[in-house]
Design a protein around this nucleic acid. Structure first.
Lengths: 152, 152
DNA sequence: TGCGATTAGATCGCGCACGATCTATATTCA
DNA sequence: TGAATATAGATCGTGCGCGATCTAATCGCA
């Protein structure tokens, strides 16, 4: 059975698809974030990496990848850009030379303060109360779980 | 106020963010779609354009852009690829030479039959009943409306 | 101990996605 | 009518995002 229902007997359009709602809302989030993150000199994926490191410093590339569901082929160049920007350092773990450890620089840590209002601005832009936002987030996260199980 | 709530007094992580739920679920959808669309020779954005044209043939680049919320800088190369693949034709409208009209070829039209089960497979992968999927889609679409208003 | 298998990142090619800018056509209205 | 303006796409540069592949380090186990 289809994931969404067309309004009438006509052919389904993109607007009927749940996947398109997700897809286009992701872009919409990006457009709201852009001017805010431009102030910080970050792109949205870079911002996510910084949030992950602000939550817990000194993680490996693999750990960040697990949290953000991204491959090393995506992360490596992104992390090099963050390193060039001076927000973090990348260095091989002496205990296991295969791993690369990511550590915030002072500049990277202090950026957190400047990023304070970003979350607030985004929260406002959603037009949702905190409770509704949490509820929606949980439903979408559950959906993601199903999809990831389906994709093996 | 923040759009999401951290579980405790610790620093918020990416998993707490509504935007990240959307972002990562979009990727998860893509991973489920990939093997199905590979059969058709389409990428996911290309598939969306085809869905839009199956719903209504002979649209302009601008109309497709309005429906998918994409810029011409994204669509022009994508549409050229669909043209090269033989699924549609691009031609200037004689009534208004600024516009480019997109028309399905026979190959493009008949692809619709082959794409029939894709929707069903995706529906299953969501783990949602039709009703729940529609409800969630509507909530996310509403969220997109708020975000787009905020991004002016 | 040493060799095959596994793991962690890095590299490469391709296709989005967008902002900035350019060209060509169409519209407006002085 | 003709010059200023507006509109529709196209082009270009940058940064994801991923599959496929590569390299180097570690592990497993005979």
């Amino acid at each position: 059975m289809p994931s969404t229902a067309p309004k009438a007997a006509s052919r389904p359009d993109v607007a009927d698809l749940l996947c398109f709602a997700i897809y286009s809302t992701g872009h919409a989030f990006n457009r709201v974030y852009k001017p805010l993150l431009d102030e910080l000199g970050l792109t949205y994926p870079q911002y996510l990496v910084m949030v992950a490191l602000w939550a817990e410093d000194d993680q490996t590339v693999g750990q960040i990848g697990d949290r953000l569901f991204l491959e090393s082929s995506t992360l490596t160049p992104l992390l090099k850009r963050l390193e060039t920007l001076g927000f973090l350092t990348r260095s091989r773990d002496p205990e296991d030379e295969r791993q690369v450890r990511l550590r915030l620089t002072d500049k990277g840590s202090s950026l957190r303060k400047k990023a304070r209002d970003v979350g607030a601005c985004i929260g406002e832009a959603t037009g949702l109360q905190m409770e509704a936002a949490v509820k929606l987030r949980n439903e979408i996260t559950k959906l993601r779980g199903h999809l990831m199980k389906a994709a093996k």
